[in-house]
Amino acid sequence: MIDKNTQDLLAKADSAPATPEVARRAIPLVDLTSLSGSETGAEIEALCAKALAHQVAAVCIYPRFLPIARPLLAGGTVRLAGVANFPDGSDDLARAADEAAAAVADGADEVDVVAPVQAIMEGDVGIVGELVEAVRVAIGPSTRLKLILETGVLADPDRITAAARAAVMAGVDFLKTSTGKVPVGATPEAAAVLMRVCEEAGMRVGFKASGGIRTAADAARYLCLGDAIMGAGQISAQTFRFGASSLLDDLVRVAGGGASEAGTGGY
């Protein structure tokens, strides 16, 4: 259940202004993402060029494109992320670990792995910790591990909290809202739940909002929540990310003095 204090913070976040300063703050937090499944090599090259031009946090793509992206990003500060167990969230932990290990072998600095959503819905929260532990062994301690909890499916705040805490106890680095492949992606309510878990973990774990975040106005809401719950001094690419494909365009527009556009969902 969302407590009264969090409800007040959510109301405040709804009116957070999408100012040029907010947009400029959000740009280096973006994981520039392309996970449509129909990408071409040329489109991945263009994505990497765009990421470098704006110095975002990372590029997040399907593992088959990692060998294309790796040399383009090598030597810079933009990190490379691949997905695993994506997007279905299978309970085949060995498969998830193998996919994650293969992504690292192909150059990924970070792995975004989907939690076994159906198993969690059936009451097996412990499988979250088992997944994180298996993937951590597969990728090693230096690769950043983000867990996608598909909060729009899990829905219940107590269920989301339990799954997130299990992941934290097992050594995850980031808690992420969504694959962007289900009807309900990120919501401020679910974000607040995950941020609370990050806060209680002493900020050893970061937060990533993804799924339907398309505008600077969207980013402003989540940054407002992050400042209130996680702490304004805690927000950086080490602790806070936006996973999105079209968000960057709107952030650049607003950073230059333009108005934020209306969003329509999706990655």
Rank of each mutant, 00 (worst) to 15 (best):
A26V: 10
V137S: 09
A94E: 11
P157H: 12
V182H: 09
L175M: 05
H54V: 11
S38W: 13
F174C: 11
A209G: 06
E122Q: 12
P116I: 07
L131K: 11
S15L: 09
G152F: 09
V184T: 14
I160F: 09
R204Y: 07
E21L: 15
P71Y: 04
D98A: 08
T187S: 08
A57P: 04
T19M: 10
L225Y: 01
G243C: 07
G129N: 04
A167H: 09
S142A: 11
P188K: 02
C198V: 00
A57V: 10
L194S: 14
A217N: 05
A219G: 00
T239S: 14
P67H: 06
A163S: 15
A97F: 05
E189W: 11
F65V: 00
S34Y: 02
R214G: 04
Q238I: 07
A170H: 06
G257S: 13
G265R: 04
E133Y: 13
R79L: 06
R253V: 15
I160T: 04
D31P: 08
A134P: 12
V104G: 08
L251V: 05
D8I: 10
S15T: 07
A23M: 07
A16T: 15
V111F: 15
T264G: 08
V182L: 12
I148P: 08
G89V: 05
S210T: 03
G75C: 11
S210N: 13
L194Y: 03
E200T: 15
A101W: 14
E39Y: 02
D88G: 05
A216V: 03
R214W: 06
V113T: 12
A16C: 10
L80G: 05
G76Q: 04
V83D: 02
S260D: 05
R79D: 00
P28Y: 08
A217H: 02
V59L: 06
G82R: 05
G256T: 12
V168H: 03
A232S: 14
A170I: 13
P28V: 08
A101E: 10
V78L: 13
A216K: 08
D173G: 14
C48L: 11
L93R: 01
M1W: 15
I44K: 03
M121E: 14
A262R: 11
E110L: 09
E261C: 13
Q7L: 06
D112M: 03
I61Y: 02
F240H: 07
G258R: 14
T33H: 01
K208G: 04
N85W: 09
P188L: 10
A232Q: 13
R136G: 10
A84R: 05
M203F: 08
Q234W: 12
K146C: 06
V132A: 13
Q234F: 02
S90Y: 11
T264H: 14
A259P: 09
H54I: 03
Q238L: 02
Y222M: 02
I120N: 07
V168M: 10
V197G: 02
R144F: 15
L131R: 13
A232T: 12
I61H: 01
A162Y: 14
G123S: 10
V59M: 12
P87A: 00
A237M: 12
V252W: 06
A74P: 01
A18D: 04
F242W: 09
A101D: 10
A216H: 06
Y62G: 12
S260F: 00
A46D: 05
A244D: 00
V252G: 08
A102F: 06
P141E: 10
A217Q: 07
I229A: 03
A138P: 07
R70V: 11
D173A: 09
A166Y: 03
